[in-house]
């Protein structure tokens, strides 16, 4: 007898994790094939979810097919745990599978993300689920799927390289800053979803399992652990990530991705970490260290 047989979740009008078992099986088969062909977009029978396309229906279906009663779920939207999209998706899973949730990247076993990779390095066994609006990296070059499918089939990616070269010719540099195309495992061109190009290097040789779900376009793809992810570039214009002159105004980090925040109507601004968990953890650590130093110096005095 299964040890989890007695488990119930809050809203037992639905199956665990909302999707029916046949849908989960279909998505699970697609996920295994996606991991077997890194970067290749596997078509799947995307279901209508109780939220609008563009709000993470693909990511939710992937998470729902993967998640179990022992998982700890973290949901982020642009790095933040407390924005609308993150809060509503987290609440959705609390309702339909009564799963434990966290804001800590280190404690989470499944992380669903919209447009960021957490700053805290991921570990083996963790699953990172990306929400993808447009899975096809060649869409703006060639809108017909019959053609892009052939381009992927025969690794005809010259057109993408030309697009980047047009940037170099116009602006002297590659102007693309997010959704930066990358070649996975030396073969398939993949859209990393609209993460900043700052996050592209984190995908490479990552110990965690990275899954991508596009609900409207009905595609699933994946980057397995320890897989090469090469962002496209040129020998004389190598791939570079964004850098900032200052540091995070709250935690002082110089290594994280910073958001610009307008603080009044007279042009004042500050830069803060986009990853709220990373920033809060660093602030708490700094406060704890300061308290320890104060305590020691207080005892000496």
């Amino acid at each position: 007898m299964s040890p989890t047989a007695a488990l119930v979740h809050k809203d037992d009008g639905y199956n665990f994790a909302y999707l029916d078992e046949q849908t989960k099986r279909m998505i699970r088969r697609s996920l295994l094939k996606a991991l077997s062909i890194p970067g290749y977009q596997v078509p799947f029978g995307g279901r209508e979810m109780p939220l609008a396309y563009g709000w993470g229906t693909g990511g939710i279906q992937v998470t729902a097919s993967v998640i179990g009663p022992d998982d700890v779920l973290k949901v982020i939207d642009q790095g933040a745990d407390d924005t609308t999209n993150a809060v509503s998706i987290r609440r959705f899973f609390q309702t339909v599978c009564d799963v434990a949730v966290t804001e800590s990247t280190a404690e989470a076993t499944v992380v669903q993300t919209r447009h960021r990779v957490p700053e805290t390095p991921l570990k083996e066994g963790q699953v990172l689920v990306y929400q993808v609006p447009q899975p096809e990296p060649l869409k703006k070059i060639e809108p017909r799927e019959t053609e892009t499918r052939k381009m992927h089939a025969y690794a005809e990616y010259g057109a993408m390289q030309v697009t980047l070269y047009e940037d170099v010719a116009h602006f002297g540099r590659i102007a693309k800053t997010y959704d930066y195309p990358a070649v996975i495992n030396g073969r398939h061109l993949m859209s990393p979803s609209p993460i900043p190009k700052f996050d592209n290097p984190k995908m490479e040789m990552n110990p965690a399992i990275q899954l991508f779900g596009a609900g409207r376009e009905k595609r699933i793809y994946a980057v397995p652990p320890y897989t090469s992810v090469r962002s496209l570039d040129f020998d004389d214009h190598p791939f570079e990530v964004q850098t900032w002159k200052g540091s995070c105004a709250l935690c002082g980090s110089t290594t994280s991705y910073l958001d610009e925040v307008i603080t009044d109507d007279r042009g004042s601004r500050m830069f803060v970490c986009s990853d709220t968990d990373f920033c809060n953890t660093r602030q708490a650590e700094a406060a704890a260290a300061k308290a320890a130093v104060d305590k020691v110096s207080g005892e000496e005095a």
């Binding site: 047989a5 665990f16 078992e21 989960k24 998640i67 009663p69």
Partner: peptide
């Protein structure tokens, strides 16, 4: 025995 959680 438990189709949902065993399969997961």
């Amino acid at each position: 025995a438990d189709p949902v959680f065993d399969a997961q």
